[in-house]
Design a binder for these strands. Structure first.
Lengths: 174, 174
DNA sequence: CCGATGATGTCAGCCGCTGTCATCAGCCTA
DNA sequence: TAGGCTGATGACAGCGGCTGACATCATCGG
């Protein structure tokens, strides 16, 4: 999206919606017909990510424990984070962490992701509280792994990092 | 705060900052000198909560594991959530969950709480990733426990609920 | 009694966001 | 092919959150 370039170049707050719209030959009003607000431009792929998690949960074997279902979901979702995508993810992440408003939006997306996962777990027979805890834990693992994955010197795939993080979390809880 | 009453009565979005200000005999401009924005009014006690968590971490015995330190922090912070405060917490929570913008702010507060806790853990010698995971897990436990605690028919104290939730989370990770 | 300091009021203005109505392109159908 | 339907865009007005700049006023130590 062209908006990201502007956010990178001159910062999120100093970029006007009119600027973004004009940079793609449209009107401010039209921008707001495509995106709910100025922040939402950066969160377009959210549905795809959510769907990947859902697919992962549904594809887990019937015998899987809640955490194993979440682990499967993590693995599936990690596939879309290819190596070529890493620089873009890094840039986007930098913009988001530089602005509290964008950070808020990201946290909301993650929370709704967790809620959706919890729903999928419940649909597979997991009890309410266990579903919420497992989903929330899964998102935490994803967050931590993602932060490491976009580091400049990181070589491992997201899936690999996720496995390490999950392992450490289990050790912590033991 | 008088703002909460207005938010409850007529909803957050339909309440104007000027209304809030006038309801306490002040000007809109003065409101913005006391609070960064319209949402911030509902998050005044945040520093106190954060401090309680910090005290808890620091008071944990030197031999404690990261998760034990966090457990200690949960216990200390739970003290301030007395039974008389429960109805107010419930009302506030209802307003927040009814509005995405307020929910975003709450999530940001929780994230910054987790970051602060992670910092305290690091200060006590916990490794970076373990500190983040333990802190994040602690906040998750707090969230889940808090949600249960404000339920209408709930009798247990927040500390009791927290213990149950933590126990279940450990079982999940096993 | 005076001057410094801090809290509040006033005013102007930017920008995010919305409702409303007009316009226009593509496309289906008689 | 004419006519009408639909969906996307533009144009405009307006609200409300938020900020900067300056004025006013109370309080309080000297």
């Amino acid at each position: 999206m062209a908006a990201l370039e502007l956010y990178v170049r001159q910062g999120f707050e100093k970029t006007t919606v009119e600027e973004i719209a004009q940079s793609v030959g449209l009107t401010e009003r039209t921008f707001f017909r495509h995106f709910a607000d100025k922040r939402e431009v950066l969160f377009d792929g959210q549905d795809m990510l959510q769907q990947a998690f859902l697919d992962g949960v549904r594809a887990a074997p019937p015998s899987a424990s809640p955490l194993e279902m979440v682990t499967a979901a993590l693995a599936v979702s990690a596939e879309s984070f290819t190596d070529e995508r890493r620089p873009w993810s890094r840039q986007r992440h930098a913009v988001i962490t530089a602005n509290p408003g964008l950070l808020e939006r990201e946290l909301l997306k993650r929370a709704s992701l967790a809620a959706v996962i919890a729903g999928a777990l419940r649909a597979r027979g997991v009890a309410e509280r266990a579903a919420v805890l497992a989903a929330e834990t899964g998102v935490t693992v994803f967050n931590v792994a993602f932060s490491e994955w976009i580091a400049e010197d990181e070589q491992r795939s997201l899936a690999e990092v996720e496995r390490k993080v999950l392992e450490e979390l289990k050790a912590l809880a033991a």
